[in-house]
């Protein structure tokens, strides 16, 4: 079998570029959704807030500065081709890319070493959260994002059981978004993971926030659920910045996985309007 060798330095450079790009340049899908929301928004304050967010995102891109001061915790989804051989430590190569981006790119270092007792800043925004999946092929595909915690803190997971059905799933998602209210920097992107185990549901929810906001689940039943939830969320009235209005969310993305006969886990990962992610294939 032929193996393709990729240098650790190539991985590091690619990861660095992804984190600079996603923190300076908002994605085209979000930009289009924000512009559309400004056209549709019922509240004058809401329209003004959306205008300021668009102005902010333009300044960040123009000046190559972070669009939000919370440049997040670094999260990466890696699809690692089984015909690839990295000449070095893959995880260290990724970590070095994160370190260089946050150090050289004037991104905020927001990670503390110990969650409860020490809470001392690691000063380089590492470690990153790296989800690696081995796939067939000879490339490495990386999707990366800086996840801010204003919205992360508003996320929730619940181990629903089968009798809850679709209505129970929707209710939990809506309850979570309603409880978040004005706090997660609306308009938000709602990532939902349904199925799997406790941790798989949470991972799927994060992955769902990285999916373009104008995409839909390939299963028409879940696509319908996404549309219905978006409508319901935008009836809540929180609006841009939570100051009232008809745009509380830009999109709802649902990802699913097979699960146990006894279970129906649902995880809701909320992302702010600065829904930052970028992808590359090496």
């Amino acid at each position: 079998m032929e193996y393709r060798t990729i240098s650790a330095g190539t991985i590091t450079a690619a990861v660095k570029r992804l984190f600079l790009d996603c923190n300076y340049y908002i994605g085209g899908d979000i930009l289009a959704a924000l512009k559309n929301a400004r056209e549709q928004e019922a509240s004058p304050v809401g329209r003004s807030v959306l205008g300021q967010i668009l102005e902010n995102d333009a300044i960040a891109a123009e000046e190559q500065i972070p669009l939000c001061q919370d440049t997040g915790m670094a999260v990466l989804f890696v699809e690692y081709g089984d015909k690839v051989c990295v000449d070095g430590d893959f995880e260290e190569a990724v970590t070095e890319g994160v370190r260089q981006a946050y150090r050289d790119g004037y991104l905020r270092k927001s990670v503390v070493s110990d969650p409860v007792f020490d809470r001392v800043n690691t000063k380089d925004n590492t470690p990153a959260i790296i989800h690696t999946k081995i796939v067939s092929g000879s490339t490495i595909k990386i999707t990366a994002g800086g996840k801010g915690f204003g919205s992360e803190n508003m996320s929730a997971i619940k181990m629903l059981t089968p009798s809850y059905g679709a209505e129970g799933v929707k209710q939990f998602i809506l309850d979570t978004v309603f409880a978040a209210g004005p706090n997660p920097c609306p308009p938000i992107v709602v990532g939902v993971g349904i199925g799997g185990t406790f941790e798989r549901a949470a991972q799927l929810a994060k992955k769902a926030t990285f999916r373009p906001v104008d995409s839909e689940n390939p299963d028409p039943r879940y696509a319908e659920m996404e549309r219905e939830l978006l409508t319901q969320i935008n009836m809540m009235g929180f609006g841009p910045a939570g100051l009232g209005g008809s745009t509380t969310a830009l999109g709802v993305n649902i990802e699913t996985a097979p699960t146990h006969i006894a279970g129906m886990p649902v995880a809701v990962n909320i992302c702010c309007h600065a829904a930052r992610h970028a992808s590359t294939e090496i």
Partner: peptide, 30 residues
């Protein structure tokens, strides 16, 4: 940014204070 507890709102009234909201995520503009 975002909502405050009733205890904070009470403290604002008690002390004749104010709570301002800036737009979350408008960091480059602010």
């Amino acid at each position: 940014k975002g909502a405050r507890s009733q205890a904070v709102i009470d403290a604002i009234v008690r002390n004749h204070g104010v709570y301002f909201a800036a737009i979350g995520g408008a960091a480059a503009l602010i």
